[in-house]
């Protein structure tokens, strides 16, 4: 415990001494983490939208007018038995017409002049959310199209799947950019820690010669890196929160969850501590 107190106190004192270089380091880390945080913010909100769309996504299985009740029941049973299916609802021809009249009242008169109901009866299938179910849902759509009594199948998820692919690629690119920026931030932390190491070289020489344990020699520099990283990530969180506040005025979005915030802070602390640890190796050479 004494060594932690010592290392922490020395790290704080060193950051105060470093002044501008510490601020530059914190700024660099903050920029890296603002990128990460902004990307996380966009990512979680896009994911929310996609989840909602996926939740609502359906396969519409249109039945032939000539389909027997037995065929319909068979198709319905086939659908209900599949694990990716959340619910199946039968919409009769009359119900479909009624729905059209309700949804498009201005066209209601047109339907009145028709000699027969043009809407087919259908089974509307709601799928379970989740990326994995998309592929099996495609198979399901193909399978059900071959069933007796089925006229046509419309699958809403195809374009969503493509959108998911685009989002995944964007997410990967974002993570890559954030990773590169974090690497840059780690180098900056390392440079700042090395500067303070150089400033304290007389003390370090004495410490080494009097037999100070390595935890005392290196500890302050590890803590310094850790603090730089942690403070940088915290500053980034504040900036992201401000951005969120402004973005929220134009578009309903949600802020990062506790998990994502903890991830950012932890990443900052870890990046800083690792950079500090590596830089501190020079302390007892």
């Amino acid at each position: 415990m004494i060594v932690f107190n010592y290392a922490f106190a020395e790290a704080i004192a060193s950051l105060r001494r470093s002044g501008r270089s510490a601020l530059i380091s914190i700024g660099t880390i903050a920029i890296a983490f603002i990128t990460l945080g902004g990307f996380l913010l966009i990512s979680v909100n896009v994911q929310d939208v996609l989840d909602r769309w996926l939740e609502a996504a359906e396969i519409s299985v249109y039945l032939q007018d000539t389909a027997a009740d037995g065929d319909r029941v068979a198709v319905e049973q086939f659908l209900r038995a599949r694990p990716e299916v959340a619910a199946v609802e039968f919409v009769s021809k009359e119900h479909a017409l009624q729905r059209f009249r309700t949804d498009f009242p201005e066209l209601a008169d047109v339907t009145g002049s028709l000699s027969q109901n043009p809407f087919p009866s259908a089974l509307e299938v709601r799928l379970r959310a989740g990326d994995d179910s998309t592929i099996s849902a495609e198979t399901l759509a193909k399978d059900v199209a071959e069933k007796s009594g089925v006229a046509d199948v419309q699958f809403d998820r195809t374009w969503l799947a493509r959108l998911l692919e685009v989002v995944s690629s964007a997410r990967l690119a974002g993570a890559l950019v954030a990773g590169i920026l974090m690497l840059g931030a780690a180098f900056t932390v390392g440079a700042v820690v090395r500067l303070s190491l150089y400033a304290r070289r007389d003390e370090l020489e004495i410490m080494a010669l009097v037999g100070a344990p390595f935890s005392y020699i290196r500890g302050p520099f590890v803590f310094e890196g850790l603090l730089l990283g942690g403070i940088g990530a915290a500053v980034a969180l504040v900036v992201v929160a401000v951005l969120y506040y402004f973005a929220g005025q134009y578009q309903p979005v949600r802020f990062l969850g506790y998990g994502e915030m903890a991830l950012m802070l932890t990443a900052g602390i870890v990046v800083g501590a690792v950079a500090g640890t590596l830089a501190s190796r020079a302390a007892h050479r």
Partner: peptide, 10 residues
């Protein structure tokens, strides 16, 4: 005192 401090003495 620095010597004793970095040796972790109270």
């Amino acid at each position: 005192a620095f010597v004793l401090r970095v040796l972790g003495q109270p």
